[in-house]
Design a protein around this nucleic acid. Structure first.
Lengths: 105, 105
DNA sequence: TTACTACTTGGTAAAGTAATCAAATAAATT
DNA sequence: AATTTATTTGATTACTTTACCAAGTAGTAA
């Protein structure tokens, strides 16, 4: 049985890539086809495809086939709360460092 | 200049290790010496030391020397909000999967 | 049935991450 | 000055992650 720290780590790792974060943000509102995602993130198709597979495996995205296209979407829209939380934490951390810098200089 | 996705990724990666998460939680209230941390997480000292160095470099921890001991503490207590957010997101995701499972079976 | 489009997968090489043991530092004590 | 204690760092090894190109699959249309 896995401990909570390992579960948290697995979850975090799924988000820990610039391309994957960009994909998640892009999918926050509506589903998009692989082709649309590739265009948006400006990546290589095979690479993007692998990142999508990873996000799906991690339980963050789901896909749906329609004709030739495969559409990906958020499995749980609440995940965007988490995404926003990362964003906020990073910004707060950056600002904090700037505050420290201002104090010193 | 780095983009926001890379900054977010760096930040996430700092948390993406079971030992590091456990350390961060342990330090949520008060500072602790390396020895105390090693005992608590039950790891090898040189390994724990490296994880601490990483967390410090990532801007999450600060250290303070007193005699033979080095005490680590959270640089920005608000980071615990983020920690709790990870926890919550993981649990919500697990529950969601269980809900789906319940629906199917 | 051939060819085309959208996407995934295999193979591989490069880069990054982590654990371990031994050696090094640095402060405190004898 | 030598020893002990607390911690970091170097070197090595194993493992994981990522990118890339080429080949494969699976629908669609001619």
């Amino acid at each position: 049985m896995e401990d909570i720290y390992s579960l948290m780590t697995e979850f975090l790792k799924a988000f820990s890539h610039p391309l994957r974060l960009k994909i998640v943000e892009y999918l926050s509102e509506t589903e998009k086809s692989v082709g649309e995602i590739v265009k948006y993130v400006d990546g290589e198709i095979s690479n993007v495809s692998r990142h999508l597979a990873l996000l799906k495996k991690a339980g963050i995205l789901l896909d749906r086939k329609e004709g030739l296209n495969i559409y990906y979407h958020m499995k749980n829209p609440c995940i965007m709360d988490f995404y926003n939380c990362i964003n906020k934490a990073v910004k707060s951390n950056l600002e904090m460092n700037r505050d420290l810098l201002d104090k010193i200089m």
